[in-house]
Design a protein around this nucleic acid. Structure first.
Length: 217
DNA sequence: CCGGTGATGGACT
DNA sequence: GTCCATCACCGGA
């Protein structure tokens, strides 16, 4: 038998920062009746479970965050801002509720289909440049919440090509206050045009902090 | 290039 | 009622 197509569950069943780091350069692939789209990850963000004030798991399990408290290697998909879907990969032991948010990547398979799903994107580098854009390009939504990405599902993560440390840049997470603010939760590929360049604070009230990520341009 | 803002709906207090 | 792990679009520099 050949090597498994998707990453083994053990890949996800460890520290969330390690998983985030190792996800860079991997390919997330989603197969639907419309076809297949694959995205090579260029930016991810770690959420360290119940102790992380920035995590959806911070207040303990709820119907929405049920999947986060479960087994590593499953997708946690949530609905945001009334119109967007974002996808995380659960990691660590059961009950840990850690997860890695897939923030951006390059479409490396199914370019035409991705374009048709992302009509607003003017350039191909914008197709999956941002967490909600990435899910839209992949065609991921509520139906993939809880899906096991370790094989046998329409949503899977392929080995891709590992990225050397020199190409990895760590930066702060946005919109999170509290003790964990100093931890570099967000990892991205240096000088990669598909890395999202988002605003700190978003549409927050005036006076929002202006700490820019260190991985721009 | 950059900052400001509306859209839009669900989860949680 | 408030807060979003966001995006697209618009106008100004």
């Amino acid at each position: 038998m050949g090597a498994p197509l998707t990453l083994a569950r053990s890949f996800y069943d460890r520290d969330v920062l390690e998983v985030a780091r190792d996800l860079l350069g991997r390919v997330v692939r989603h197969t639907t009746p419309e076809g297949v789209v694959g995205v090579r990850l260029s930016e991810v963000e770690a959420y360290a479970g119940e102790s992380d004030p920035g995590s959806h798991a911070f207040r303990g399990p709820t119907p929405r965050t049920r999947v986060m408290f479960g087994e590593a290697g499953h997708a946690y998909v949530y609905f945001s801002y009334g119109m967007h879907w974002c996808v995380n990969l659960v990691c660590g032991p059961v009950g840990t509720a850690s997860a890695v948010l897939l923030r951006a990547g390059e479409v490396v398979e199914g370019l035409e289909l991705a374009r048709s799903r992302r009509v607003a994107a003017r350039k191909d580098v914008d197709l999956a440049r941002g967490p909600a854009r990435l899910t839209q390009a992949l065609g991921v939504d509520r139906a993939q919440d809880g899906v096991d990405v370790c094989g046998g599902s329409s949503l899977e993560v392929l080995p891709g090509r590992p990225v050397p440390d020199e190409q990895v840049v760590w930066g702060p997470r946005v919109g999170v206050a509290g003790a964990g603010a100093a931890t570099p939760w967000r990892a991205s590929l240096v000088n990669d045009p598909t890395v999202s360049a988002y605003r700190v604070g978003g549409r927050r009230s005036p006076g929002a902090r202006a700490t820019r990520g260190a991985d721009e341009s």
